[in-house]
Amino acid sequence: MTIAKKEMVSVLLAQLKIYVTSGYEHRFSHFDHLGNEDVYISLHDKGDIGKVASVFQHHGGRVITITPYVVDSGYQIAYHFDVTGIVLTVTLLTEDGSVDSITPILKSADWTEREMQDLFDIKIIGHPNPDRLILDESMAQGIFKEYMTLSDAMTGAATNTLWERINEAKGGHDE
């Protein structure tokens, strides 16, 4: 089991070297006493994520989830894949807040890409079903980039819906 996993990691890293044209950095691997290996990789160019997904898809891989987070120069996005029991975390940087969708290659990315679009306002290019997932249409995209206190949220400051309803009840007059 352990040997098979080690071999698979070597195969995957070698194939990424061929297909990821702008290159990548194998930052580190975490080994545990049970024979598991967690691999952490950084891409030099965000445009290579589709190639990474294709390599993993070829070996029966799937997307576990995707973690976006805000950094000074834009967004860091960590893609977590499972390939035959190995967890590979592939991180990229997007400065303009857009990234190619990998849902056409790995369907398991579908919801998590849409969630990323809702909560962080990251533009997912080429998603087959880019509709809202978590947030209602009345709320602004990218709510996770803002800090909103619970009291603001509870008084309805997060949306216009409450005031629209009050105004409607008053006969549509703003006061």
Partner: peptide, 18 residues
């Protein structure tokens, strides 16, 4: 940074912590 996963009653549960 670290990842962990377990088999919850409904299936794989995954955590990523940085």
């Amino acid at each position: 940074e670290g990842v962990a996963r377990t088999e919850a009653p409904r299936g794989e549960l995954f955590f990523y912590v940085k």
